[in-house]
């Protein structure tokens, strides 16, 4: 507390008065922010929560159902299948994508690459292509009749498997996502590598360490923070998988079902089925699961760092 406050206890009212004045002044400063924050960040979440405890029926109208929607989601095989699918996507695609991104970042950073700005730009370029356009583009290439795959089959007289068949479509989507985001992740890694002090490399060289040793002992530990961040972004991205399957759905309607990913499921529920309440529930559960997993990864990543 301040040393200027009167020592007597009789002045309590003044103190209260001062406190309340102080509090209002503070609110005036943070008020505008809080208003926007509440409106933009809190309101949608609160509204989703509100929606998720009701049920609107075509016959019977809207009723309060408490946690019924959550109970339904817990035992909804379509939801869990979708979640299983994006989880599989996560454990297979994310390591591949981050691995390639890391490799490219290290190669560009090594300074041994001729024309490194060219490679940096061209690898980053796909990230500038909107996901919708990228999916359409790849969708055309995947075509077995008139697409690139079809042309290859015809030119070489072979019969490549259909990338849009139910068994392969997830891998095909993984390929698109990898193509799109390798450049983005590469840039994060490359930026982190650039700030590693060169004196460390010189010291390592004096000690006789080779390039692999430098990578293992200096570069990777130095960019651990960037690796964790990129991993968390990728986890969130995987769980939010929507654009690519949604676009490819028109080309492979039987392989990509309406519940292919949890996001696609939530979308179909609300836009084809008018089940806004259940859709909100699915969205909230997905949000929670994503947060928990991202948090666990962050905890693990940070603990190692410490």
């Amino acid at each position: 507390m301040t040393t200027t406050s009167p020592p007597t206890t009789a002045s309590t009212p003044t103190v209260v008065h001062r406190r309340s004045r102080r509090r209002w002044t503070g609110w005036m400063f943070v008020g505008p922010f809080m208003a926007v924050f509440a409106l933009v960040f809190l309101a949608p979440i609160v509204y989703s929560l509100y929606l998720s405890v009701f049920r609107t029926q075509m016959v019977g109208g809207t009723t309060f159902v408490g946690l019924d929607n959550y109970a339904r989601a817990m035992s909804d095989p379509q939801f869990w299948e979708g979640l299983g699918r994006v989880s599989l996507f996560l454990v297979v695609q994310v390591p591949i994508m981050l691995g390639i991104a890391l490799l490219v970042a290290l190669a560009i950073d090594s300074g041994r690459l001729y024309g490194k700005s060219f490679f940096r730009i061209s690898i980053f370029m796909p990230y500038a292509v909107p996901a919708v356009v990228a999916s359409l583009m790849w969708g055309f290439m995947y075509g077995t009749r008139f697409g690139l795959v079809g042309n290859l089959n015809e030119a070489l007289g072979i019969s490549l498997p259909d990338p849009l068949s139910p068994g392969l479509v997830l891998a095909s989507i993984g390929n698109i996502v990898t193509w799109e985001f390798v450049g983005y992740n590469m840039l994060i890694f490359y930026a982190a590598l650039r700030v590693v002090p060169h004196s460390l490399y010189e010291a390592a060289e004096i000690d006789g360490a080779g390039q692999w040793r430098v990578i293992g002992a200096i570069k990777l530990p130095a960019i651990r923070g960037a690796l964790v961040i990129a991993t968390i972004f990728s986890i969130i991205g995987s769980f939010q998988l929507f654009n690519e399957p949604s676009i490819l759905q028109s080309l492979a309607p039987n392989a990509i079902t309406t519940a292919f990913t949890p996001n696609l499921y939530a979308y179909s529920l609300s836009f084809s089925g008018q089940q806004y309440n259940y859709s909100a529930t699915v969205a909230i559960i997905m949000g929670l699961i994503t947060m928990v997993i991202a948090y666990v990864v962050q905890l693990r990543g940070m603990r190692k760092e410490a």
């Binding site: 075509m58 139910p166 309607p253 039987n254 392989a255 309406t258 519940a259 084809s272 089925g273 008018q274």
Partner: peptide, 21 residues
């Protein structure tokens, strides 16, 4: 159906499987 729009939207999830599996 009075909810044919939704029913049609899940046609490929169900009947459509006969075309690919």
């Amino acid at each position: 159906l009075p909810f044919q729009v939704y029913a049609n939207s899940i046609f490929n999830d169900t009947v459509g499987q006969a075309y690919v599996s």
